[in-house]
Design a protein around this nucleic acid. Structure first.
Lengths: 235, 235
DNA sequence: ACAAAAGTGTTACACGTACACCCATGG
DNA sequence: CCATGGGTGTACGTGTAACACTTTTGT
């Protein structure tokens, strides 16, 4: 077998920043590290890249191993390669962030991996550079969510506009005018109104909506500033 | 020395997508690959990660080795890890894209690395998955440039608004209304008007401008849609 | 009846776009 | 003195934000 000579080879890890939303707060799924060093400390779910799999495949595999979920939103965030980031041995980590509907995941919490949901605003200390990863993922999520209808990935199939608003308000740590918010969201044409109402949170009740998957996929582009007709330009 | 056991270790490459602008067209700097296989075919400038350097440092080193330039805009794009992307041996490539002022670089072209500027619209066939990398970089550049004043990195210190417009028009492959364009750009307050005019391209002459570096660095956030007061929200 | 959340109507205004028109200058 | 590209003034329309007000229903 021919190989490139004279070069060093390194471990490749994948780490997953897993976001969830319980209806009130944005949460992050963490595990208690099973390996030494830092055993017992909180960590992102991760693993090593295997010889025959792509980075995306590895991220999916690792996410599934922890949550049992498939087909969730998963996107490469950044590669982290500081020489000292892992004290055991030099390791490059490719971080992915995932958006999961927290309700689809109510299983082996605290069993095999000692996994637990933490409030994004009250995270424990994390191993290595995982805090940096989370900070970058959070920033990226804010960024993307401002331009793309990505946060629907965190909601159940059926949801109300007020629920969506609480989610957005959590992401941006602010409050919006509910009247304008619902109109703006509906004006995208991405939502399909259902017949039933959610009466858990108010007396009047808020209509449920579902995402129009076709339009959702088709409208994933941006609509921007600084350029006259951005809609027509960006792919 | 303790190491993680039972895991395979891989080569890490860095590849640089280097954009330039000559006043008319957007260009990409490519080299002729010196290694087998695919020796002689066109390729992005790249190299292997060395044991003691970070990914960013490696990208800077590789960029400097080819262009002699330091302090240019350089940003991680994506990690590519398809198991078969390099036929010699499995290699993870972390791609970076760079924006350089093409005028600062008029040196050893076609000497040590057989480097050459190609029109972005007329690239030759590239080795491995480099065409995919370029496509992603181009997309990212469009995306970022629509939100951030990033394209100034491609211009010399002193430039005119019409030059800037030609650059934007090249990126988005379209034309803009020059009257509105200049006003919009000036309204950002990022430009400082100079006393001299560039009379090379018109009889009246266009004033030169310089970038207000302080404001430039301060105003690197986005101003967006979908969210009521995005300016105040995104960091 | 009342409180509380959901949602509609209306208005003011900022901003993007279009375009008539003026400016400066070299040939 | 006119052709050419640079640039200003202005008018129009769309989209966003603000907020008064109506709807619905459990207690």
């Amino acid at each position: 077998m021919i190989r490139y000579s004279g070069q060093s080879r390194l471990l490749i890890a994948i780490d997953c920043i897993i976001f969830g939303f319980d209806g009130h707060d944005i949460k992050l799924l963490l595990i208690q590290r099973g390996l030494r060093p830092e055993k017992g400390k909180w960590s992102l779910m991760g693993g090593f890249l295997e010889p025959a799999e792509s980075l995306d495949d590895a991220a999916s595999r690792i996410l599934k191993k922890l949550t049992g979920l498939e087909g969730v939103y998963l996107e490469q965030l950044h590669a982290f390669g500081d020489p000292l980031r892992d004290p055991v041995e030099r390791t490059i980590s490719v971080a992915y962030f995932a958006l999961v509907d927290i309700h689809r995941y109510e299983k082996q919490l605290s069993t095999e991996y000692h996994a637990e949901w933490f409030l994004l605003k009250e995270l424990p200390e994390l191993i290595f550079d995982h805090t940096t990863m989370v900070r970058m993922a959070r920033r990226e999520l804010r960024y993307k969510a401002a331009l793309h209808p990505i946060l629907f990935e965190l909601l159940p199939q059926r949801f109300t506009i007020p629920q969506l608003q609480i989610l957005y308000e959590g992401i941006y740590d602010t409050t919006f005018d509910n009247r304008n918010f619902s109109r703006k969201v509906l004006s995208t044409g991405l939502l399909i109104k259902q017949k039933e109402k959610d009466k858990a949170n108010s007396k009047k009740g808020a209509f449920y909506y579902k995402l129009d998957k076709r339009k959702y996929k088709a409208n994933f582009q941006a609509f921007l500033n600084f350029i006259p007709n951005p809609d027509k330009l960006l792919l």
